[in-house]
Amino acid sequence: MAMQGIWSGTISFSLVAIPVQLVRAIEPGRVSFRMLHSADYSPLRRKMFCPEEERIVSPEEIVRGYEIGPGRHFLITDEELESVSPERSRTIEISEFIDLREVDPIYYDHPYYLVPEKGGEKAYRLLAEVMERTGKAGLARFVLDEREHLVAVRSAEGVLALITLHYAGEVLPAGDILAAGGQIDALEKGRMKKEIKKRMSRFDPDAYADGRRKSLLDLLKKKAKERPPVEAPAAEGEETEGPADLIAALQKSMRKLKEDR
């Protein structure tokens, strides 16, 4: 299965429509593992398995179901799912603009970028520039991965940056855990403010590296020096030479070739 980009569609505000593609703003780090069979180091594939028939099921045999009781399901097709919000599966329609500083970061979920598709460059640039100058972000809703998200679109250095937001209903009320109340000790607060001022700085994310990733890389480096990597048996598990008739036909050609010499 191959496809281009995560999503492609249109972003619109009022009557202006801009063709865009959604791209990732988060890429996994360099260290990623593959699952192998410990017996022979052959790579493992993720497949769906039917426990009833005890066999692997191909993608064409898989349907989506909603459970209404133990072992009882309705089937829901892709088309039905898309029909829930058809207008939002291909369009990010900005319904209003807000000041992004009003958005509590608690709402931030997952970031992406939008890049213009052919013909949309100018209107894209305009929307980015206008949001940059006004400090505004657009609010929209659109469907990605079978889910409708509330999203904010802002300009980040001339690029439209989209961030999915949690719905208000998903943000849990802090309730009484923060309502501890009580007097604030002015002395203690003053001491803390001093501490804060002493350590004021600009946000520099590059100064913080994932220690785990570094030690993983160190481990891999060390292992690479210790012994050579293992290799999967290149399908040599298949003992057969190939179909007998093919072998026989090739052998016949081979004999002819040798006689011609």
Binding site: M35, L44, R45, K47, F49, P51, G65, Y66, H73
Partner: peptide, 28 residues
């Protein structure tokens, strides 16, 4: 501070609606 809600679907086998399980398969 966050609790996400979403409708859960299951993947089923077309012929008998048996609930499928994800497994790792050895290529060979």
């Amino acid at each position: 501070a966050i609790r996400e809600e979403r409708v859960q679907f299951h993947l089923l086998h077309k012929r008998d609606n048996a609930k499928l399980r994800q497994v790792m398969i050895c290529a060979y």
